[in-house]
Amino acid sequence: MKSLILRTAAPPIVSLMVLFSIFVLLRGHNEPGGGFIGGLIAVAALSIYGIAFGVETVRRAIVFHPLAIAGAGLLLSTLSGFLSAIFHVPFMTGLWITPVVLGVEIPLSTVMSFDIGVYLVVVGAVTSIALSLEEREDS
């Protein structure tokens, strides 16, 4: 795809989509959204980027191998579950802390890190699928 319009429009669209995906991920606990949807939006963004600039550019842009990202996500989710073991509560019990930074209460929880893990797995695994198929197209 050598379309000039796509190439010009892709960077701002893609960065907006990735930002939006993170927004959807973080608000997921209280509004419609969450790790699965956020992850898929990010995948869509990366796919568009890949169509515009080629698979290699995407691979460079995300630095890590997509499946490494997925693996990190799976590890993060699992660790979020096991953190409860330290506090002698059953596996996967949600733990919350609310530190106050600059006068604003920020609720942090293992539930959130779990959801971030889900996000990373979806981003990594599905991007890997999409990229490997797109790559074949190039060659």
Partner: peptide
């Protein structure tokens, strides 16, 4: 259903490949 959608997609992609 939400998780089922994502999993059936992965499964479908695998079958496709």
């Amino acid at each position: 259903i939400l998780t089922a959608i994502v999993i059936s997609f992965s499964f479908f992609a695998f079958l496709l490949v």
